[in-house]
Amino acid sequence: QKPIVRVFLPNKQRTVVPARCGVTVRDSLKKALMMRGLIPECCAVYRIQDGEKKPIGWDTDISWLTGEELHVEVLE
């Protein structure tokens, strides 16, 4: 079983991306966001920890988040 990260996107959409070492959250999600007309710069990404949303940086190595759920939200 490959290491993955589940990602909840705006508009009730979601995707799953591989959690590859040395790849940033930005690079992992860029294609999924672009297909939906979004760019990382207009969004914020969060991980859910103890039921709370914790913001994470787009430059975080995605392999550190293996098995986690991330939420991407459009910044107002």
Rank of each mutant, 00 (worst) to 15 (best):
T15Q: 02
L38H: 08
C42N: 14
G37D: 15
E76F: 01
R26Y: 08
Q13G: 06
G67Q: 07
R20A: 12
E73T: 03
D50Q: 07
K2A: 02
T24R: 07
P55T: 11
R36G: 11
G51P: 07
V17M: 04
R26G: 14
A44Q: 01
M34A: 13
V74H: 12
K12A: 13
D50M: 10
K31T: 06
V5C: 10
R47V: 09
H71A: 09
T24W: 01
G37N: 15
V7R: 00
P40F: 15
K31L: 02
G57S: 11
P3E: 15
T60M: 08
R14H: 13
P18T: 11
N11M: 07
L65E: 07
A44R: 10
V17W: 01
R20S: 11
C42L: 12
C21S: 14
P10S: 01
M35E: 14
Q13A: 06
V7E: 00
W64V: 14
P10W: 01
D50P: 04
I48N: 07
A32N: 07
T60H: 09
K2H: 05
Q13F: 04
G67A: 06
V72R: 00
A32V: 10
G22K: 03
R14M: 10
V17N: 01
S28Y: 01
T24F: 02
F8R: 08
I56E: 09
S28R: 02
C43M: 15
A32Y: 04
I39P: 13
V23C: 11
M34C: 07
V5H: 00
L33F: 15
Q13N: 08
D59A: 06
L38A: 05
Q13S: 05
K54Q: 10
V17D: 00
G37T: 09
R26A: 12
W64S: 14
G37V: 02
W64G: 14
I48M: 13
E68Q: 12
T24H: 04
K2R: 02
D61C: 04
C21N: 13
V45D: 00
M35T: 13
C42R: 15
V25K: 00
D27I: 12
L65D: 03
Q13I: 05
K12E: 14
D59C: 07
K54V: 12
V17I: 08
V72P: 00
G37P: 01
K53I: 04
R26L: 15
R20V: 08
N11A: 07
T24M: 07
P10L: 01
P10Y: 01
E52D: 11
S28V: 02
D27A: 08
R47S: 12
G22R: 04
L29M: 07
M34Q: 13
W58S: 02
V23E: 07
L29C: 06
K2F: 15
P3I: 02
I56H: 03
I39K: 15
E69C: 07
G37R: 09
C42G: 15
E76I: 02
D59S: 08
H71Y: 12
F8H: 11
D61N: 09
D59I: 08
W64F: 12
R6L: 03
I56F: 04
T66H: 09
H71K: 09
R26H: 08
R36F: 03
V5R: 00
D27E: 09
V25N: 00
R26W: 14
R14Y: 12
T15L: 05
F8D: 03
I39N: 14
P10H: 01
M35W: 06
R20T: 13
K54C: 12
R6C: 04
D50F: 05
D27Y: 03
P3D: 15
I39M: 13
V23F: 08
V72Y: 00
E73H: 08
S28A: 06
N11D: 11
S28P: 00
S63V: 05
D27G: 08
K54P: 01
D50C: 07
M34Y: 08
K30I: 04
E76L: 03
F8Q: 05
L29N: 00
G51W: 06
L38P: 02
G67M: 06
T66C: 09
E76H: 10
W64Q: 14
S28K: 02
R6W: 03
T15Y: 04
I48Q: 13
V5T: 03
L9R: 00
W58M: 08
W58C: 03
E52N: 10
G67P: 03
V7A: 06
G57D: 07
V5I: 09
T24I: 04
R14E: 09
V72A: 03
Q49L: 11
W64M: 11
I62P: 01
K53Y: 09
L70I: 07
Q13V: 04
D27Q: 09
V72I: 06
I4H: 02
M35Q: 13
W64P: 11
E68I: 08
R20I: 06
G57C: 14
I62Q: 01
C43N: 02
E41M: 07
K30A: 06
D61V: 03
V74K: 15
L33S: 02
T15C: 05
V45N: 01
G67T: 05
E73F: 06
L38N: 10
A44I: 04
K30H: 10
I39G: 14
R47F: 09
R14Q: 14
L33I: 14
K53D: 07
R6P: 03
I56D: 01
L9K: 00
R47C: 06
V7K: 00
V25M: 13
V16T: 11
V72L: 05
G22W: 02
D27W: 04
P40V: 14
P18V: 11
H71M: 10
V74P: 14
A32W: 03
P10D: 02
G51E: 10
S63R: 06
A32T: 07
I4E: 04
K53E: 09
I4M: 05
A44G: 10
I56W: 02
D50S: 09
L75R: 13
I56Y: 04
P40Q: 14
T60V: 10
F8E: 08
V17K: 01
K12D: 11
L65K: 03
G37E: 15
C21P: 09
N11Q: 11
G51A: 10
P40L: 15
L70K: 01
R20F: 12
V23G: 05
E69Y: 07
R20W: 04
V5W: 01
T24Q: 09
K54D: 09
C21M: 15
K30R: 09
A19L: 05
L38G: 03
G67H: 06
V23K: 14
W64E: 14
F8W: 09
G51D: 13
R14S: 09
D59L: 07
G37K: 15
V45H: 00
A32S: 09
T60F: 13
C21F: 06
E52I: 09
T66A: 12
A32P: 13
L75C: 15
L70R: 00
T60D: 08
L29T: 06
I48H: 11
N11I: 01
T60C: 05
R47Q: 14
V16I: 07
V72T: 03
C42Y: 07
K31I: 02
S63K: 10
L29I: 12
L9E: 00
C42V: 05
E41G: 10
T15V: 04
V25A: 05
E52V: 08
T66R: 09
V25Y: 00
A32L: 09
R36Q: 08
G37C: 06
V45G: 04
W58T: 02
K53S: 08
K30N: 11
E41T: 10
G37Q: 14
L33M: 12
R6G: 02
E76W: 03
C21K: 15
M34E: 14
E41A: 12
L38T: 06
V17C: 06
R14G: 11
C43Q: 02
M35R: 15
P18W: 13
A44S: 10
V25P: 01
M34L: 11
K53V: 08
K53Q: 12
K53H: 10
V45R: 00
V23T: 11
K30L: 05
K2L: 04
Y46L: 11
N11G: 11
R14P: 06
L75H: 11
V45P: 11
I62H: 01
N11H: 12
L75N: 12
C42F: 05
D50R: 09
P10R: 01
Q13Y: 05
G51R: 09
